[in-house]
Structure formats: C-alpha cells, structure tokens
Design a binder for these strands. Structure first.
Lengths: 262, 262
DNA sequence: AAGTGGTCTAGACCACTCT
DNA sequence: GAGTGGTCTAGACCACTTG
C-alpha cells in the first residue's frame, strides 16, 4: 500500500449535502480535467482511495462507476482504473459520396483510413436476400424482399462501425451488387453502371446508448454512446434505391455537413 | 409486499457464468423490449425483486443501474423505477436555415415547435462581449474578442438544447445582433441586412455523455447522451461570420441532412 | 504471492412519496 | 405509517494481472 501523492486529492466536506461518493467522483473528475491524471494514466487503486478518504470500498466503487458512466475512465480487471484515452477520430465529410471519390479501385473507407495513417479492415460480410423491416421497406417504397449487405469496419483492429445496406431485389439480384465484393467504387458505382444515376442522399442522425449486442459487436467501453445514421440514396428519377443503416462508436467519429443558405 | 405477476420474470441460471446482476438485468430488459412493461410503467420494487430472485438488495440495485445506464429506465425517489418514455422528438431538417424560413416574425424554433403541437420557450438569454476560446477564434478567423449569445430552448417545459453563438465584434457591435431579441428572422436575417449575405453553413456533429454541468442545464436523465453540434456560417465572400455551439439532449432530436451525389 | 478489480451478502439509516 | 429508492458499512470470496 502506497500513500497517495499529496495534494492531488482533497478531503471530504462532511457538512455538505452532497453524497460522499459524488464528492469523491467530483474530486477525481476535476483532477482528470486539470490534467493531474493524464490520458491512459492509472488512477489510485480502490484500496488507496478507501484509505485516503476513510470510506468503505463500495462507496469508492460507486464513485468510480459514476466516472465510468461518463466515459471518463475505464477499468481493467487485475490492473486498475485508467483515464480513457481519446481514440483517433474518423471524420465523415459531406462530400464523401461525391462521384469523384468513387473512381478509384478502393473503397472510401480504405482510402480515407490509409490517408489518415490507420490500418483499415472490413469483416463479417454477409450478403443475402431477406424480408425488410417495416421501416426499411417504407423508406424503399414498399418492397417485400430486399438484398441485405452487412459489414463491420475496423480501424487499427478496433471495430468502429457496423453497417447494413438494403436494396430492392429487382435492382440488385444477379448483379455485382449481390457479390460480397462489388468491385471498385462500391455499390454506388455499380448502381450507376446499371443505369440508376444517383441524385442525392438523405441522412438521419440519432445518438443513444448502445444495446448489449452493439456493445459486443463494437467492443464499446461503458460510457460510450453510438451514433445511429440512416442514409437513403435516391436516383435522378426520385426513386429510393438503397437504405444504409449504420451504427458507429460515437467516440470514433465526427460527422461534417454542408448546408446551403438558400 | 405483493407477489410478482407470474411468468413475467424467470429464474436465475446458477450454472451460468453470467453474473447474477447481469442475468436479472437481462430478464428485465427482455421484458421491457417485449412490451411486458410498457412505456412509463413501474417495474417491480427493489424489495419485490429481492424476494423473487432470492438475492441481496445490492445485487438488485446493481442490475437496475445497468438498465439505467442504458437509458431504458429511470428511478424516482420514493415512487419506484419506471420504463423511460420516449419524449417527443424534434427533427432538424437540412433546409432549416433556408432564406424562405427566415421571413416570418418568429424564430425557427418557435414556429417549428408550435407546428408540432409543443409549447416552446427560450430562456437564460445572455448577450455579452468576451474573449473567445481558441477553437472558436480559429473557426472565426482569429478575432480576439467576440459577441457571445447564449440561450436555452425548452419544449413543453423540458430543456432540450443549449446554444451559444459567437460573432466577430466588428460585425455585431452596435447592431441589433447585440440586442437580447434581434428581431424577426433572428441574427441571420440581421446579418444579411448588414450586407453579409450568407452563402452556406458547415456543421460538425459529435455524440458523447454529458458533463455534470450539462446534466444540470438540460435536466438529463442518466443514460441519455448529448449531441454536440458546431455550426459555422459563411458569407458569400467565404468569410466565417458566426460560430454556433449547440448541445442537445440526444433523446429529443433527429438531425436530417441532404447530400449531393455529385 | 501480492495487488488489482468483480461480485455478493446482510445489514443500517435516511429522504422522499403516497394515503 | 408504510413503502419506495438513496447512501453507506464491513465484511467475504473470486478472477485476473504482474512480479
């Protein structure tokens, strides 16, 4: 047992209304915010905090769980509690689907990740025909069956995004779109080759806490929300030709958009 | 003490590796997902769960705190734990800053909320000159002082959004923009009257867990993330004329955007 | 083997809500 | 007053990591 560095953490205010575990959480949070514990640094162990504050272990754990819920720290069994480092962020620009980015042989994800010095991977590819959910069907104009393409994107081995594309069967069946690898430029390039010239995309964005399944798939730390993005692609005749449902680890993304003033 | 409705909650699997509190959380989550506890409904009390599962109260509380962290339930002191109802959602369309929406007398927020049948309020208005943060200054092209306009938006009495606008002082000083109420069409209408014709907006979107201050300001339930939106307005000469930093309760918003395919 | 966090128990007292 | 959740204690045993 090692004494805490003096001055980093203060004492409790027994006259305060504020619960003891909240006071401890406040002091740790302040120390992290002020850089006295840096990114990746180990916090004092539970037993050190128990001794420092003279409280029971459950009170200390309660304080730590507050910080964990805020996404400030994460715990590693047998090792300690650490200040959560900010992962590299992927920026999605509003021109990311511009035709000029679609001419190369690689996918947008791969090109962009390599440019940023990260190692991109795509896995758990699934391509199959199925019945769409009511929501997807409505967005696509009511087809009874669709082609579904599901994949997971990883950056430097870390899963950051899970995406499912849905296309009406009459567009996609027996085309390269139904292949696991649709070829250079992705399915948008194939759609245009098939005569469905793309006009615009609509995106809907929500943020929420992840479901247990999403926590597993994206290996999310506690206190990390997800961004839920639903994109619909429209061709020049106004027909919806694809719906893409994407769940992203919120700490790995910044979305950027441009809006006209007119 | 009342017995639980039979069949709603099952028994524990003592052969499972899964921690008891997680098994309890799983069963409650499943019951909620399947609609056996509806929105706003009260879950069994802690003591009922203690009796049903034959575990200690801390174990039950641990299970409930998992669901609370997921944003599925919220507790009310002295009353019980309830399935969290989904609040009315505000949809931000990509044309929300189009000039044609700026001609009326009311603010976009007011018009839109009343159309949706909600009661809009704006409060905690603060307008003052100050030194910008490094980030805001950089986005505005490096001014040393800015006009800051801060306000909070409420829907049916519930705070949903906190926004701070920053404008270079040379644009805003001694203009209607420096007034608490800038007049019909808001500050964008005033900027155009002053000769700064708006060309486009850039928006950056992040999602994260709220800080303690944001939890207070937006009266957020636990398990509700925030959407952090930073918008920069550019005039036709390419000059950034405003930065707006907005924090929104994520459960109250859907953002919608349109992207060109070209 | 020693230190770490993960889980769980069996109590206690308190503040809040409802009737 | 009875029932609810909020806080806190003082233990226990376990699984994981490191030396």
């Amino acid at each position: 047992m090692v004494a805490l560095p003096s001055g980093v953490l203060g004492a409790l205010d027994s006259t305060s209304d504020r619960a003891v575990f909240r006071q401890i959480a406040d002091q740790l949070r302040e120390a992290i915010d002020k850089g006295r514990f840096k990114e990746g640094a180990k916090l004092p162990s539970e037993s050190e905090l128990v001794e420092h504050y003279g409280v029971s272990r459950m009170t200390v754990r309660n304080a730590l769980s507050v910080l964990q819920g805020e996404g400030l720290v994460h715990s590693e069994h047998g090792k300690g509690v650490f200040v959560r480092p900010r992962p590299p962020v992927r920026r999605l620009a509003s021109d990311r689907f511009a035709r000029r980015h679609r001419e190369q042989g690689k996918s947008a994800f791969t090109v962009e990740a390599e440019a940023a010095g990260s190692r991109p991977e795509v896995d758990s590819l699934e391509v199959k025909e199925e019945r769409p959910t009511q929501d997807v069907s409505a967005r696509l104009g009511g087809p009874r069956r669709v082609l579904a393409r599901r994949r997971r994107y990883l950056l430097d081995g870390r899963p950051v995004e899970f995406a499912a594309s849905f296309l009406p069967l009459d567009l996609a069946r027996n085309t390269p779109i139904a292949q696991p690898n649709p070829g250079p430029g992705g399915i948008y390039a194939r759609l245009e080759e098939l005569g469905h010239r793309l006009d615009h995309f609509e995106e809907e964005i929500r943020a929420r806490m992840p479901s247990p399944a999403e926590i597993r798939t994206l290996r999310l730390a506690s206190g990390v929300p997800v961004i839920h993005l639903i994109r619909t692609a429209f061709d020049t005749e106004g027909r919806p030709v694809e719906v893409c449902d994407t769940v992203m680890a919120a700490d790995a993304y910044v979305l950027a958009y441009q809006l006209p003033a007119t």
